[in-house]
Amino acid sequence: MLETNIKPSCLKPEIQAITYAGSGDFVHLYMQPPAWGYRPGQFVMVRPGEWGNDPVWPRPFSICEKTSDSLRLFIQVVGRGTSLISRLQPGSTLDMWGPLGNGFSFDPDVPLLILAGGMGIAPFIGLCKRHPHPGRINFLFGHRMGIECYPFAELPQKVNKTHLNQQTAGDIVSFQKVLEKRIRDFSGRGRILACGPSPFLKVVRKYSIESGADTWISLENRMACGVGACLGCVTGTTTGEYLQTCTHGPVFRADEVVFEEDDRLLSAKPHL
């Protein structure tokens, strides 16, 4: 599944359609397809043309799927930017650049365990649909909102898939237990790919390191440029460096990165 035509460019595509799933907060954005190919796990930066001077930043989104007809993003409204994007109309244009980042790398002949949390399902839709042997994919999906909000049903029939809803603290604990068991059982049998919110990835990382699993996680970080220039999206690594999530990632080997944000915030002291 090696794409050859991956050369990033900056385009101004038109929105073809916006559809909602489950609620107005879950948005499928379809736009004119770019000429480039992409690797699942890569992302694009999107900034509606009508934003003018505000908001300043574009927003990064995983590429959900690309067909000959359209490029599709799956977006949850979580703040001002995504809220404005969810209200765009077909025909309006976007500034969009990509494909960015490294994406997931895997051998299609080797079994995969995919672990997705919430919006982390987005890059795996295209991945599973394009995979030559979907029967070799095991898919575990954890979600907080109703399953109808997520494109889970689109996964190919042959994918061995499970989804677990977490609404209470008890659900989260039992989901973590399932995660632990799945990671330990799968370790040594193939590659694990994970995408989701940081607390979820922390758990995946922990059990992967403990069991020696070959796990790759895709990080979500706030980004301003997406091309490696602003240094606002860096992630700490076990070698003590800060690497740009946008260009060195967003996919990292689970034992390569450290999650430090929570601890750091607690001890924040001004430098002035």
Binding site: N53, D54, P55, V56, W57, G81, N221, R222, A224, C230, L231, G232, C233, V234, T235, G236, G240, E241, Y242, E260, E261, R264, L265, H271
Partner: peptide
């Protein structure tokens, strides 16, 4: 230089704050 800890950037009205720390 390694630069400052994360988070390093924040969006503000018509602008942004950064504290990269010269990485």
């Amino acid at each position: 230089r390694k630069g400052n800890p994360m988070p390093r950037i924040a969006e503000t009205p018509c602008g942004m704050l950064n504290a990269i720390g010269l990485q």
